[in-house]
């Protein structure tokens, strides 16, 4: 983790008078697995959208893969991979066909595509399923295929948006194995989750509340600082009470719903 992959300085995004992201400064190193935690409405979605080049900041600075979020958002989009809980896979195509389809979208040359296809099938444990229909695959396989497709253009940065909520623990651990291997090859992985067990897999986590950073450290350091056994307990300690108060005042928790 020598080079920085994502840097923000006093990054702020307002919507009218509402400050969604409030003076956030972070540095994420290459090959790091970095988690964004926060309850609904904490500002993580807005921050991620800025870092994906989808939204301009109001003030402050940010570079992603060396590109400026104000002026080079197109370059940023070409340099990131994005995967969410809802995979955008074609269920009635085979595994190999999905890879070929996405390769086409990313404009990969024929030989490059062949090479990437082999690599994905091998690295993500899908080689025996190349000709299987995507619809019939178990969840964990679909998830790895979606991850492979999101990385066909070899982005240096990968965004995982609520990647594995509620799946079976074996599939989740295998998925995180894949993520760790991917990071081991130098890819920076940015993850949003409100599933605190998942925070334990990150190298460092950022905890946000009403747009601000309230903690930024390794899970181990946070647990020992607050003398807690799990990230869930750390999170409740840090965020719980404040949220309880804002909720009873009836000003919170209206947006950012997951169906």
């Amino acid at each position: 983790m020598h080079e920085t992959s994502v840097t923000t300085r006093e990054l702020t995004r307002r919507f009218g008078r509402f400050v969604a992201v409030d003076r956030v400064s972070i540095e994420v190193g290459s090959g790091e697995i970095f988690g964004f935690l926060g309850a609904n409405g904490a500002g993580k979605t807005t921050l991620i959208r800025v870092l994906c080049g989808l939204l301009k900041p109001t003030t402050g600075e940010a570079t992603v893969a060396g590109y400026d979020v104000y002026t080079q958002s197109e370059r940023i989009k070409q340099n990131i991979g994005y995967m969410s809980q809802r995979f955008s896979l074609y269920e009635d195509l085979t595994v190999a066909e999905n890879i070929e389809f996405y390769g086409g979208i990313y404009g990969l040359a024929r030989t490059k595509l062949r090479q990437k296809e082999k690599e994905i099938l091998k690295n993500f444990g899908l080689h025996r399923h190349a000709d299987s229909l995507t619809a019939g695959l178990p969840f964990g396989f679909k998830q790895r295929l979606a991850l492979g497709c999101a990385m066909l253009h070899e982005p240096p940065i990968l965004f995982l948006d609520e990647p594995t909520s509620g799946v079976d623990p074996r599939a989740r651990r295998e998925f995180w194995d894949t993520i760790h291997e991917t990071a081991g090859r130098g890819t920076t992985v940015l993850v949003t989750t409100h599933f605190m067990e998942e925070a334990e897999y990150c190298n460092r986590v950022l905890i946000m509340h009403v747009g601000r950073i309230i903690a930024l450290d390794t899970p181990d350091a946070l647990k020992s600082r607050f003398e807690k056994r799990t990230m869930q307990e750390v999170f409740l300690e840090l965020v719980g009470k404040e949220i309880g108060e804002t909720r009873t005042r009836g000003q919170h928790g209206e947006q950012g719903e997951k169906p």
């Binding site: 909520s165 509620g166 409100h194 605190m196 869930q232 999170f235 409740l236 928790g253 169906p259």
Partner: peptide
């Protein structure tokens, strides 16, 4: 399921 950690608690 799908509820944030504070609400879960």
């Amino acid at each position: 399921t799908g509820v944030d950690p504070v609400s879960r608690h």
